[in-house]
């Protein structure tokens, strides 16, 4: 028996690929959490677990040459845009073969090749820079656009609105992706934002916005298609508010006092983006447990290899202290 396909339906291969991508990010982050506990990763480390559908859905609508930029919760974005998990992990462990030669760490990583512009440690600072990437596209008169990600916490930073104003004024091709994971560190959206409907925050600047179920990769993709069409046709910026949820703490040192364990468990049980896609694969495409286990095993193996690679790599030579300060 075959599943009846409509034109809009995505193929089995495509959906399986989204599943793989999301799983790769989740297993990567779980491993990063482990390595942190073992002392291989130091400093600040912000995990993306729970939010995987956002980057995977939006990367599915990106074109070659489009730029992306985000905050310090950046591992998922890097893996989704095709950066190598083993070199990301190497960076997390401060090794010479990390993306920044071990000099950036978890929060500050870049890939010129993949048009990934960081990895920024200061809340909100990536937003005007993301506007600048879009400015460069307009200056060069290409059809590329900038995916500028920031959180619900950053949505209260002044420079975000300075950027909204210029982006709208100059019709910059930028999609502002607000990843609303409900908490800015430990402060819930309601306790920090006078208007919690973040997708309306561009209204004063004439920027259209849309609220999206960020736990559903297909809904993210559908919204992404609308936003990219808007931007690529010269209509200026677009805001996507992705309603999502982070299962882990803000960073590894989060006391988890600001929400209940039940709240987290409920979200995991009912809205997990990976489980949801898994059940679509089972129901619509009759994937068996064995089919899926095969994928799970391959992903686990890749992550395990990445961790071994990172752990067994050398630290940067001390001469690296003095390089890359000036070009």
């Amino acid at each position: 028996m075959t599943v009846k396909k409509t034109k809009k339906d995505l193929s089995e291969i495509t959906l399986t690929n989204y599943y793989k991508q999301m799983l790769l990010i989740r297993r990567f982050e779980e491993k990063a959490g482990q390595l942190y506990g073992m002392g291989h990763i130091g400093g600040f480390c912000h995990l993306y677990i729970g939010q995987e559908a956002v980057v995977v859905g939006l990367e599915s609508v990106a074109k070659k040459g489009d730029q992306r930029i985000t905050s310090y919760r950046d591992h998922g974005h890097m893996i989704a845009c095709g950066m190598e998990p083993k070199n990301v992990m190497s960076e997390l462990t401060g090794k010479h073969n990390g993306y920044s030669k071990g000099k950036g760490g978890s929060m500050h990583m870049f890939s010129k090749e993949k048009n990934f512009f960081g990895g920024h440690g200061i809340v909100g600072a990536q937003v005007p820079i993301g506007g600048g990437l879009a400015f460069a596209n307009r200056y060069r008169k290409n059809k590329l656009l900038s995916f500028t990600y920031f959180g619900d916490g950053a949505a209260n930073q002044g420079q975000v609105y300075e950027t909204f104003n210029m982006a709208s004024l100059w019709k910059l091709p930028v999609i502002f992706v607000i990843e609303n994971n409900q908490y800015a560190m430990g402060t819930s959206l309601k306790r920090a934002s006078s208007t919690p409907a973040l997708y309306t925050r561009g209204a004063a600047f004439g920027i259209p916005g849309q609220a999206v179920d960020g736990m559903d990769v297909l809904k993210v993709r559908a919204a992404g298609l609308i936003a990219t069409k808007h931007c690529r046709t010269g209509k200026g910026p677009f805001i996507l508010e992705m309603n999502t949820y982070r299962y882990r703490g803000h960073s590894m040192s989060d006391p988890a006092k600001y929400r209940t364990r039940d709240e987290v468990q409920k979200m995991r049980a009912e809205r997990d983006p990976i489980d949801n896609l898994r059940s679509i694969l089972v129901k619509r495409f009759k994937k068996t447990e064995d089919d899926l286990k095969l994928i799970d095993r391959a992903v686990k193996a890749e992550i395990s290899e990445a961790a071994d690679f990172a752990i067994n790599s050398d630290e940067p030579p001390t001469s690296e202290l003095w390089t890359d300060i000036y070009n």
């Binding site: 820079i129 600048g132 400015f135 460069a136 200056y139 900038s146 002044g158 420079q159």
Partner: peptide, 12 residues
Amino acid sequence: HGFTGVGIGAAF
């Protein structure tokens, strides 16, 4: 604050 960041993004 905003246009400095925009300039920096363009420079990247």
